[in-house]
Design a protein around this nucleic acid. Structure first.
Lengths: 246, 246
DNA sequence: CGGAATGTTGAACCGTTTCAAACGGAGTGG
DNA sequence: CCACTCCGTTTGAAACGGTTCAACATTCCG
């Protein structure tokens, strides 16, 4: 998050490059794209006011989510979008939007025209590969969410999500278990875990009580990473982090 | 399913071609691949005894699923694999297997060597496009499952799954709402929906009682498609079927 | 400062699980 | 052909986890 903030393009190069390094030549090419960075406040619905149909948008800083609404009007967040992710990758080949995107914090979005990204992917196999790899990782995360929501109780689910976010939002140069800012409200946590805000509150208390986390003003501190991962049945394998860094 | 059974390769061409037509020349190329079809009984674990590390496997006939096991040893099925799907696409770029694959019926698998598929995708943009599109559809389905498991009650979840399977397993040339064979046991349905077998049984009874389905000997009959979709909060948009047929 | 959004707490309620027992059909061996 | 076993299904009753509702506290923000 911090690195991405320095320059919008560093974000793209950063996450793409973690999959497959892009040469400086490519970077110059990226800079020459007809793209610019937009800012959105927390709560913005990007589909409507944000990304035009002919653009891809990459999250450069901040936090967003994908969500769907059930028939009774209850919301379910289906994935968390972190800096480096492309918001509307599925426009690559699919017509219908099957979910909505909403920001969870103030966000910067890098716009890339449809044509430009396709061109980039065609010309540079490493870019295409990075895009495919990011889809596969997203799929793997979705599968883990299905497991967690389907088979873990509320406390375990929450601990699991806090572990996941720790790795995604925390400063990666520090050991896991550092404190991090969690911009999501308890209602949004509930929407992500298929629970009610009331119960999220109780489970947060429970984790705090057992000294698995400290939680104050939407700041999470993890005294003992190992114990939290145990409480959350968390194993980072599904995030495929090693694939990013090689 | 039926069409795929005629010839293993028709299956691949079938589903791939639904995304982007492949010429007969390509088909000949496919036939020339070092591939052959294997058969597996219901319950086979494909990772172990099936697909070698250097092969991709495409389900040609039958039914399979991807599943994960929670810390307490409870199973969650995270997706259903239907004929035409490639079982281990994520080997494309990711190292770790984050889930297991198990057959739900007797299956035929078409083996394709890693090199051959990569070559095919490199040489034929339509193949590459079809592979990417299938990933995006799988992702969309996973998101819908998260919504369903997270926010629907048991009855709605079950109705939703029965609708989904009707479109995936039913004879596509007939109107939705036809009867179809559902090879899954009630325990497997429970694993797919994050419920217990006992409760699946009760909810099946409930749907039968309200005349939303007939269910006998693992055969599902849907008297009124519209009513079942309402009960299951089902809208086929997330399956992106139109993308297949164009 | 005032009002709205977010967080906190308690008590009753309800959907699903758990446990336990019985049933049915398919396959096997005597 | 029957008895036996095994697996999946069926049913009931009690227990539990999470929701719902409602009231109140706190923080945020203009």
């Amino acid at each position: 998050m911090s690195k991405a903030k320095i320059s919008p393009l560093v974000g793209m190069i950063d996450k793409l490059a973690r999959h497959a390094p892009i040469s400086l030549g490519d970077r110059a090419l990226l800079l020459a794209l007809p793209s610019k960075s937009h800012a959105f406040n927390a709560g913005s619905y990007l589909n409507r006011e944000g990304i035009a149909a002919d653009n891809y948008g990459m999250l450069v800083s901040g936090l967003a989510c994908r969500h769907k609404i059930s028939g009774e009007g209850i919301r379910q967040i289906v994935s968390i979008v972190t800096p480096g992710d492309i918001l509307n990758l599925q426009q690559l080949y699919l017509e219908d939007a099957d979910h909505n995107i909403q920001t969870l914090a103030q966000c910067e979005i890098l716009m890339i025209s449809r044509r430009a990204l396709h061109q980039l992917a065609d010309d540079h196999p490493s870019v295409a590969r990075a895009l495919v790899a990011s889809m596969l990782v997203e799929l793997s995360i979705a599968r883990e969410w299905i497991l967690s929501i389907g088979r873990h109780n509320a406390r375990t689910r929450l601990a699991h999500l806090l572990c996941e976010l720790a790795l995604q939002l925390g400063n990666p140069s520090l050991a896991p278990g550092q404190a991090y800012e969690l911009p999501m409200s308890q209602e949004q946590l509930a929407d992500a875990l298929g629970l009610t805000p009331v119960h999220i509150n109780r489970m947060l208390k429970s984790l705090v009580h057992d000294n698995l986390i400290n939680y104050k003003n939407r700041r999470v501190n993890i005294p003992d990473w190992h114990r939290l991962t145990e409480a959350g049945n968390f194993n980072s394998r599904y995030l495929h982090l090693s694939n990013h860094s090689r």
